[in-house]
Structure formats: C-alpha cells, structure tokens
Design a protein around this nucleic acid. Structure first.
Lengths: 246, 246
DNA sequence: GATTGCCTGATTGTTGAGCAATTCTTACGC
DNA sequence: GCGTAAGAATTGCTCAACAATCAGGCAATC
C-alpha cells in the first residue's frame, strides 16, 4: 500500500517533491474550501452584501444592539465585524455616536478616480499576467454588459461594468492589487447608490469597453491602456456632474 | 456692539462669512487635535510599531493573554486590535492556533513587487499632484539616505528608502494610494526583518534614487517612471536571490 | 430671543468572567 | 517505535456590567 506517513508538521514546506508531497500540495489548495470562516467574517460578509447591493442606504445608522438581535450574535462579534467594514471604507465610525453606512463625498469620488487612473491603465499596460484566460475574462464582462443592456437590466449592467474593470486589473496578476481594486469598486457602488438616478449611467460606456477589449485581444496593450485612462477621465467628470450627496 | 448672534446649528456651512463664523471656522481646523483615539487603535499602533521596527521577529507567536497583561487591556480589546493588524497583513491568524507575526514567503514578495511595479511607475508618470513640495519630499528622502549611508546607519538607510518610495507614490496625490503603499512597505519591512543580513542591501540603490530624483526635478516624468520600473525589477531579483524564509 | 446649564435616556467603549471547541502535550499501552 | 487517549492550554464567542459620551428637552439667565 502507498505510504502516507510523510505528513509533515504544518507550516513547513519540503525541499524535495515526491508523489506524497504533490498530494499534500493539492490538498493545501483545497484548504480554502474547508476553511472554517469565523463568525465575525460571516457577519461582515452579510452586512457588506446588504450595503453593496443597495439594501442599506448610504448614511443609514447601524446601532450595534439592533445588529446583534438581527444577526443573532454577540455585540463583541458585531464590533469586530464592523471594524473590518470600517477599514474597508464601507462603514464610517463616529466615536461615541455610532456606525453609519459610508456616504462618499465629491472629494472621495475624485480620489477613487485618481487611484483608479493609476492602477487600471498601468495594469493593462504592463499586463504581466495577460494570458488568454484573463483576456477572455475581459471579453466575458463585455458580453455580460451587452446582454444586460439589451434586456434593460440596469443593475446587471452596473455589475458587468465592475467585472470589466476588475478583469482589467487582473491582467497584472497581483492578488494584492485585485483586493485593492475590489475595495475601490465597492466604494463606487456606494456612490451609485447615493445617486437619485443611475439607470442608464453605464450604458454609454459599453462601446468603450468593447473597443478596449478589442485592443487587448489584438495585443495592443499600450493603446488599450491609453483608452482606459481616457475612459476614466470622462467617467469621473460625467459622474461628478450629477453627484451631490447632501 | 458687534452682534455675535449668528452661531448656527452645527453641520451647516453659512453662505455669508462674518467675524463670528470666521472664528468658529478656524476652530474646525483644530478638531483633529481633540480627536480621541480608541484604545484598540492605540494597541494596534503599539504592536504594529514593535513589528515594523523589528523588535518582534516574523513567525513569533503572540498569545492573546500575554498581550493583555503586557498592554494592560482586556482580551476583547486586544482581539479587536489584532484583527486590524491581520487585515493589514502584519499578523496572520491561524484558526484555533493563534496569532503570528507574518512571515511573507517568496510568492508574497513577488506579488508585492508586482503591485509596486503597477503603482509606483504609474504614480510618477501621471504625477497629477507633482507640485514643488512633493518633488522636494522626494529630494529630502534622497538626502536622508545619503546621510544615513555616510554614517553607516543602515537601519536609517532602509527607512529613507521607504520614504523615497512613499514620496514617489505621493506624486499621484491620492490618499487611498498612499495608504495602500504604506501597507506594501510595511510588508517589505517584514521581509527585511526575516532576512539574516540586510545591512548594505539598500546601499546600491542610493545612486538610482538620486538619478530618478534628478529626472523628476527636470520634469522628465516619463523617463523617471521607466527608471522606477527598472529599479523595481532589479530590486526584486536581488532580494529574492537571498531570501528563503524557512 | 438666543444662549447657557443641567438633567434624562440612549448608545458606545471597555472590562471581566465564563463556556464550548480545538489544538498541543504528554504519558500510556501495545 | 507507533498510535492513542487523557489532560492542559488557547482560542472563538457569549453574556452581563459599568463609565464615558452624546442627543434632546426644559428651565434659568443675559
């Protein structure tokens, strides 16, 4: 029988790779599946979801006690989860006053776009991990948006647009950048939810997405990067022209 | 007598500015001074400082109880603070096993450099906020490094190098990017502290820093950005060649 | 009439104790 | 030597409590 007695103490990687090591390596990859997510994490996920999906409006107050009863967890756990969301800029904590769903002001919007104009074009330009699969993800986001627009599902169009920009950053192949981009996009969703009318806001950008995607598929990354930069500049002014959170 | 009867309810800015309003406006600027920092925040700052200054080695275990007695705060507060440091990637939490000072592996180093190669050159290239003061900050970091190297204060040289790169990103004028860069640099410090010998590691980059700074001062941002990219590529291979966290 | 001072109620910041679940340790039996 | 079972230690989470702080109302004051 095959010896499986080589399970080493965790946290130590082996210098040589034999079959057993390959087996445990494949298991470590599956660990994320079994990983027991902490209660605080699940609470944070639940509240974050309510917010980015727009069921909790920017500016809303979130009393800790109410969250406890609503979610069935203790106040300490709620506090731990909410602190997480505060660092993600999804919530704002005012000392001794409470937690509020973040309501980004115009300066916040400008700064998010400043950051995006650094990260997105540079990710496209360098494209260190721009393999076929990642370019295909960009294409998929474009088609997803086309379908949503055709059916006039404007919320789905907004989501597709976010997938598009996430796919652009993914071309750099950096999990850390991906995570940062996810934060910026979550903040953008807050901005959209604070606007009276979103609806067809994203529609005019469909054609641009397609153009950028085609440039990418043609391997013209520099041109694509320039197009992304221009895109972001216009989107910022377009958005700011109709954004005024009271 | 001058009427001082115009003090409006807080949170509303007045259209007209008279003397009383000017007085209270000057006070709002001082508000940051009275801001009360929470205990958890101070605990997180203290532990983070211990770690990035190298007094706590990567891989060290941090039992919660010991932190409580050492810092004189309750376990709940410690947990809240440590969760913050986990999201900053300064600590790693292994479920039911405990907290450990993060020990970045080689893949982590590669990813940090991937992210830096996106953010830093792009910040320099666009330089949306590259005013005199921000360029002067770059110059200051170069001189700081020169002084440290001249006196063979290697730790200070490492700090100066971090200031240099932070100043480069600051040229983009985005607080969100600055914060992200601070996280990446904190992770870099962990890498350095996990190495047996740092000492003169940063020394060869002094001349490069100076060159980049001169390009910036001459307004040649594109050339400076290219130099930064090349810098980061070489630094990564240089660092990885001698980095093997057990 | 507007401002101040003070009181009340509600919420937050922080503490302490405690329990179940899990991991680590150690000693035991084979 | 090897696997195993009991025991110790630590974490994840809950509950209850208290001081500090904030919001709002109401009377006293200039």
């Amino acid at each position: 029988m095959v010896a499986v007695t080589v399970l080493r103490p965790p946290g130590l990687e082996s210098p040589g790779l034999d079959l057993a090591d390959a087996a445990v390596a494949s298991l470590t990859r599956a660990r994320v599946q079994v990983m027991h997510t902490s209660t605080a994490e699940r609470v944070a996920d639940a509240v974050r979801d309510e917010i980015v999906e727009g069921r909790l409006r920017p500016g809303s107050r979130l009393p800790e006690q109410r969250l406890c009863t609503a979610l069935g967890v203790s106040r300490n756990t709620v506090r731990e989860a909410m602190s997480q969301l505060v660092t993600e800029r999804v919530l704002v904590r005012e000392p001794h006053r409470g937690l509020f769903v973040a309501r980004p002001d115009r300066e916040a919007v400008r700064d998010v776009y400043r950051a995006r104009r650094v990260i997105e074009p540079a990710s496209v330009r360098s494209g260190e991990a721009a393999d076929d699969a990642r370019v295909a993800a960009v294409r998929a986001a474009v088609e997803e948006g086309r379908g949503a627009a055709a059916d006039e599902r404007w919320d789905d169009l907004a989501s597709a647009n976010q997938h598009f920009h996430r796919a652009l950053v993914a071309l750099a192949g950096s999990p850390r950048l991906d995570q940062q981009m996810a934060l910026l996009l979550a903040e953008m969703r807050l901005v959209f939810h604070g606007m009276p009318v979103v609806r067809e806001f994203h529609e005019p950008y469909l054609a641009r997405n397609a153009t950028i995607c085609e440039l990418l598929e043609g391997g013209r990354r520099a041109a694509a990067a320039d197009a992304v930069d221009e895109y972001l500049r216009e989107a910022e002014t377009h958005l700011l022209s109709g954004y005024d959170p009271t």
